Simulated assay, not measured.
Amino acid sequence: MTLPAFLLAALGEIAGCFAFWHVVRLGGSPWWLMAGIASLAAFAYALTFVEAEAAGRAFAAYGGIYILSSLLWMWSVEGVLPDRWDATGAVLCLAGAAVIVFGPRG
């Protein structure tokens, strides 16, 4: 259940933040904020389904998925192709998330 929860959380967080970006930076209608708030609430709710003994660990591990998902959003929604530095950073962050998730615990 962890990976689907992370993916749903990423979609909710990115869509919610983009709604605010759209209003503030691109001059979009304030009605976008309603969808943004709902998306951010869905993001927070999705993270409650992550199997982890501590919320902080779940949030930290989610960071790697969020970064990769943000780059995919940039590419698919905003039409900006990630460069090699984006890809390298995403790989490093996913490696860090894997250490958090799969590291041996006492």
Score class of each variant (00 low, 15 high):
12 G>H: 04
96 G>K: 00
38 A>F: 05
102 F>E: 08
80 V>F: 10
16 G>S: 07
49 F>L: 07
13 E>F: 02
65 I>E: 01
77 V>I: 12
14 I>A: 02
35 A>Q: 07
102 F>R: 14
3 L>Y: 08
83 D>M: 09
80 V>S: 06
49 F>Y: 09
11 L>Q: 10
90 A>Q: 02
15 A>V: 15
97 A>G: 07
104 P>I: 09
53 E>T: 12
68 L>Q: 00
35 A>P: 02
17 C>T: 15
19 A>M: 03
42 A>Q: 00
79 G>Y: 01
90 A>F: 03
77 V>T: 08
58 A>P: 01
96 G>F: 04
40 L>H: 10
14 I>W: 06
10 A>R: 09
42 A>Y: 02
103 G>P: 03
90 A>L: 04
16 G>I: 04
1 M>E: 14
4 P>L: 05
16 G>N: 00
51 E>A: 14
37 I>D: 08
2 T>F: 01
1 M>F: 13
57 R>P: 06
63 G>D: 03
39 S>D: 05
84 R>H: 08
96 G>Q: 00
77 V>L: 08
82 P>H: 01
82 P>V: 00
21 W>K: 13
53 E>L: 04
63 G>H: 01
94 L>R: 06
34 M>P: 02
105 R>C: 12
106 G>P: 15
105 R>W: 07
6 F>Y: 09
54 A>K: 14
41 A>R: 00
65 I>K: 02
90 A>H: 02
29 S>L: 04
74 M>F: 09
19 A>R: 01
11 L>W: 09
72 L>K: 06
50 V>F: 05
52 A>F: 07
8 L>K: 13
23 V>T: 14
28 G>K: 06
39 S>N: 14
65 I>N: 02
21 W>G: 10
57 R>S: 11
5 A>S: 07
44 A>C: 08
48 T>D: 06
19 A>I: 02
42 A>N: 05
33 L>Y: 01
38 A>E: 00
80 V>E: 11
97 A>T: 12
38 A>N: 03
13 E>L: 00
4 P>G: 03
26 L>Y: 11
16 G>E: 01
44 A>Q: 02
58 A>N: 01
81 L>M: 14
72 L>S: 05
14 I>D: 04
3 L>G: 06
64 G>R: 05
34 M>Q: 12
42 A>H: 05
73 W>A: 08
10 A>E: 12
89 G>D: 09
22 H>Q: 13
70 S>W: 00
52 A>C: 06
7 L>I: 13
99 V>Q: 05
74 M>D: 12
40 L>I: 13
22 H>M: 10
10 A>V: 14
56 G>Q: 02
63 G>V: 04
15 A>Y: 13
58 A>T: 09
58 A>I: 01
24 V>E: 10
54 A>I: 13
102 F>T: 07
11 L>M: 11
91 V>M: 08
55 A>V: 14
23 V>A: 11
100 I>S: 11
61 A>L: 06
99 V>D: 08
69 S>L: 03
67 I>W: 04
20 F>M: 11
43 F>K: 08
81 L>C: 07
25 R>V: 10
42 A>F: 08
50 V>P: 09
101 V>A: 13
41 A>I: 13
23 V>G: 14
102 F>G: 10
99 V>S: 10
20 F>L: 14
90 A>I: 09
64 G>H: 01
32 W>N: 11
52 A>W: 00
29 S>I: 06
3 L>S: 10
104 P>V: 12
74 M>P: 03
47 L>D: 05
